[in-house]
Amino acid sequence: MFEIQPMNAETFRRQTRRSTVIIALIFLALAMALSTAAVTLFGEPGGDNLRFNVGGVFVAVLLMVALMRGTFWHQPWMAPAVYGWRLKRSLMSVTNVMHQVTAAVEAGDADAMKLLRFYHLGLSQMHELDGNSSDHGQLIREMEQHKARMQALGIDTEQTHLNPAWLDAVKQTPR
């Protein structure tokens, strides 16, 4: 279950930039070292060693995937980037069934209303964290209208958790 957490946008962007630079430098070092090693071990002096260079980069990509999943993902310096990735994944899971969500909201389904409220809150935070204010005005209007409707029905508007059961229920509704 994903939960939206309060986060300072400037700090988030600074920390994600730092983690991106760290990952890029590690990849660059690995790719160069592995390509050099492949050419040294298997290449021909003065010959065409492109395939060994490409092979070294390919092995570096595979090694980076393993490092990301096994080691880096759980490091404190990666926490903001991991949070951003999880937020976007959660929002995408709602976006993928948005036509069903909106239909269920129109039909008065409380779980769909909670799901849409989570989506609005998450999308608002994503825009804030990414520094993207282009669609924020339209989103604010939609959020306020939906919030007012939820309040009128007595549904809690603080939906900071993505409950997978809400997604499952919405997916089961007829199209």
Rank of each mutant, 00 (worst) to 15 (best):
H136R: 09
A81I: 02
H127K: 13
L139S: 00
A110E: 15
A107E: 14
S124K: 01
N132Y: 09
V82A: 04
V82W: 02
A112H: 02
Q75R: 14
T95R: 10
M126S: 15
R141L: 12
D111W: 01
F118D: 03
L121F: 15
H136V: 11
Q138A: 10
W85N: 12
N96R: 12
P76H: 01
S93V: 08
K88H: 01
L139M: 04
N132H: 06
A110M: 10
H136C: 06
V97K: 05
A107S: 12
V94W: 05
T102V: 07
L115T: 04
A79M: 02
M126W: 15
G131L: 14
D111K: 03
K88N: 01
P80W: 04
G108Q: 12
R141P: 04
G137C: 02
L115I: 02
L87E: 09
T102R: 12
K88A: 01
Y83E: 07
T95P: 01
H127M: 15
A110V: 12
D135Y: 13
Q125I: 14
H99G: 03
P76K: 01
H120C: 02
P76S: 05
L87N: 10
F118P: 01
G108F: 11
F118C: 00
E106F: 06
W77N: 09
Q138N: 05
V82K: 10
R117T: 10
G122R: 12
W77G: 10
D109F: 08
M113T: 06
L116K: 15
D111M: 06
V101N: 00
S124Q: 03
R89V: 09
D130R: 13
L129G: 15
L91T: 06
H99Q: 05
G108V: 14
K114E: 04
D135F: 12
V94C: 10
V97D: 08
V82S: 04
M113S: 09
G84M: 12
R117D: 07
S134D: 15
Y83N: 07
T95C: 03
H127E: 07
L129A: 13
H120S: 08
D109I: 06
R117C: 13
M92C: 00
Q75D: 07
N96W: 11
P80E: 04
G137L: 11
M78E: 03
F118W: 02
L116D: 12
D135E: 13
R86T: 05
S90N: 10
G131C: 13
A79C: 02
A103E: 13
A112R: 00
M98N: 08
K88G: 00
A110R: 14
K88Q: 02
M113Q: 14
D111E: 08
A79G: 01
S90A: 14
E128P: 03
H99T: 07
W85Y: 14
R117G: 06
V97Q: 04
M126R: 15
M78V: 03
A81V: 07
I140T: 11
H74M: 11
W85G: 06
L139V: 02
M92Q: 07
D111P: 01
Q125N: 14
K114N: 05
D111Y: 01
H120E: 14
A112G: 01
V94Y: 08
Q100L: 09
A107K: 14
M92K: 08
